Simulated scan of single mutants.
Amino acid sequence: MEIQHSSLFPWRHKDQDTHVALLRDHIAEASFPCVGAKAAVAKGTLEVLSCNRIDSAWDDVRIHDGLLTFAAAYREDPALFRSFAVVFDEPVTFDEPTFERHLWNRIQSLSDKDVWRGQDYDARVSADPDSPHFSLSFGGEAFFVVGLHPNASRPARQFARPTMVFNLHDQFTILRAQGRYETMREKIMVRDEAIAGSRNPMLTRHGELSEARQYSGRSVDEVWRCPFSYQGSSQ
């Protein structure tokens, strides 16, 4: 099946078809390590929203609208392997620290809109980015973000356009309950090592270290501090 074009909005970005095709072909590559993303493409449950620039807030309301709709749809049908990918047209020339800064700017803006719209933070996770139980929350559902861009140092994070993939935290919980999480995680890490020559030192299990360290794909040290600050009421 094809990746789903976003049906969340009445108008389409001029590069929607291009971005969908780029992402579909990228995930279909034999070397692409994430088997969960491959499963989402096969099932037609990877939603793609095409936007303009990751260094601009221009599309943030559209993105947040999409996250709210995506979260609500998941609660109605909590099937595995659903993701919401936001593909930005540009810029494509920045380095890893610059991409990281823009990614967290978008995350902060989207979280602020969640607060403004009166959405509760998912009580199953922490809003503190220093907590080992941290995850983002939009529309009451916890999300883990995977950043992709052309100049990522890890091959698994390299993609032709800056991209933010929002994965549902609940799906990791379901996989653990089914006894499938560790097998899938190991398979992904083995495939990642095959293309990179080493295992990703940033990958940790939820509850060990804050997952915020993994979002941008850049390797960070122990003194790194997440720039995110939740602006809603404390839980």
Rank of each mutant, 00 (worst) to 15 (best):
Asn52Trp: 06
Met1Leu: 04
Asp89Tyr: 02
Val41Ile: 10
Gln231Gly: 10
Asp120Thr: 12
Arg12Val: 13
Val125Glu: 01
Thr163Ile: 07
Ala72Leu: 09
Asp120His: 08
Leu148Phe: 13
Phe134Gln: 06
Arg53Phe: 07
Thr204Pro: 01
Cys34Asp: 01
Ile107His: 02
Gly66Lys: 01
Gln171Val: 09
Ile63Thr: 14
Ala21Pro: 00
Phe172Leu: 15
Asp89Gln: 11
Thr204Gln: 00
Arg117Gly: 12
Ser198Thr: 15
His5Val: 10
Ala85His: 03
Leu168Glu: 04
Pro132Ser: 00
Phe143Thr: 05
Trp116Thr: 04
Gly179Gln: 09
Ser126Gln: 07
Glu47Lys: 02
Pro129Trp: 11
Asn105Phe: 06
His26Lys: 13
Lys43Pro: 03
Glu186Asp: 11
Phe99His: 04
Asp130Ser: 14
Phe134Pro: 11
Thr18Asn: 12
Ser111Ile: 01
Thr173Met: 15
Ala21Val: 08
Arg82Lys: 11
Ser7Gln: 06
Gly44Trp: 12
His206Ile: 12
Phe88Leu: 04
Trp104Pro: 05
Phe70Ile: 05
Asp17Thr: 11
Gly36Met: 02
Ile63Val: 15
Tyr215Pro: 00
Arg213Asp: 01
Arg12Pro: 00
Phe88Cys: 10
Asn200Trp: 13
Ser229Glu: 12
Val220His: 15
Arg53Leu: 12
Arg12Ala: 05
Asp17Ser: 15
Leu68Gln: 00
Phe88Ala: 03
Ser50Gln: 07
Ala73Met: 08
Gly44His: 08
Arg82Tyr: 04
Val146Tyr: 04
Phe9Gly: 10
Ser83Glu: 13
Gly232Ile: 09
Ser198Leu: 15
His206Arg: 09
Asn151Tyr: 14
Ala21His: 02
Trp224Met: 13
Ala212Pro: 09
